[in-house]
Design a protein around this nucleic acid. Structure first.
Lengths: 136, 136
DNA sequence: TTAGATGCAAAGGGTTTGCAACGTC
DNA sequence: GACGTTGCAAACCCTTTGCATCTAA
């Protein structure tokens, strides 16, 4: 699983993909990033975006999120933090709440497993969507 | 999102899919369920399994989990609970820990969002995998 | 009786990958 | 110069879906 190979080269593509991801708080999809990066590298391919996202993930520079949807979202903040997913509009928000590391220890004691980290995501309705009319 | 339609019929397929899922704690994939159900309904189709899993999910009889993998796993226990995902073998375990509903309220206060529930999953190495030799 | 459910197979759609050319170190 | 990386397009693979047929209520 852990990959020890190179990843030595900081190509223009890799750098710009990371820049774009770091410059937004919207937890974008690979395709959204592809479109954005195309502004700067018009002939970049979607495959390159995916490849670099996977590499950046292995380098612990970014996080991959997949909450319910059929596609992944990416987070340019590699620090563990919690998320909120709006069930109406699908947007993902960061939650400003400390990560409860003590729960990892408690689970370790209970299970005998080794816990490296945990993820937590809240589901509900964001403020904006609360104000919209109900629809069936 | 919320679907008001029928789902009135408890077909043989639906009942057996739910039975099989309820009879395991392994959080199986759709394909695994398909293979198991085939023992009882040899000519059932994979599409039927998927359709029923989606319906059962909407009926709040089961939960769909998608933690990292490209495919979903299903949980026959509709009660919210936490999970542990082994990063080595990929198995998913239930965690016997009360759900911290108070965190939902705290996030609501902080964000102004409406929180319906939260999910939490721990990642690490299960006991069995800890005993296996390291491999690169 | 009849609307929901099934089987089959094809389509969907996000993601991965093989390969030749390219670019970084 | 060597080897990681890219672009392109095809392949993958899990999941959904159209349609004729079937069946639970």
């Amino acid at each position: 699983m852990t990959r020890k190979k190179g990843f030595t080269r900081m190509t223009k593509q890799r750098r710009i993909i990371l820049d774009v991801l770091r410059s937004t708080t919207s937890h974008p999809t690979a395709d959204w990033l592809y479109e954005k990066v195309k502004d700067k590298i018009p002939n970049i391919s979607l495959g390159t975006v995916y490849r670099n996202l996977n590499i950046l993930k292995e380098m612990n520079e970014i996080m991959e999120l997949n909450y319910g949807s059929t596609y992944s979202r990416f987070d340019g903040n590699p620090q563990n933090h919690y998320h909120f997913v709006c069930e109406r509009c699908g947007r993902v928000f960061d939650i400003d709440e400390e990560v409860h590391r003590e729960m990892d220890r408690r689970v370790e004691e209970k299970t005998g497993f080794t816990v490296r980290y945990h993820r937590m995501e809240f589901y509900g309705t964001c403020r904006e969507c609360q104000n919209e009319k109900e629809e069936e």
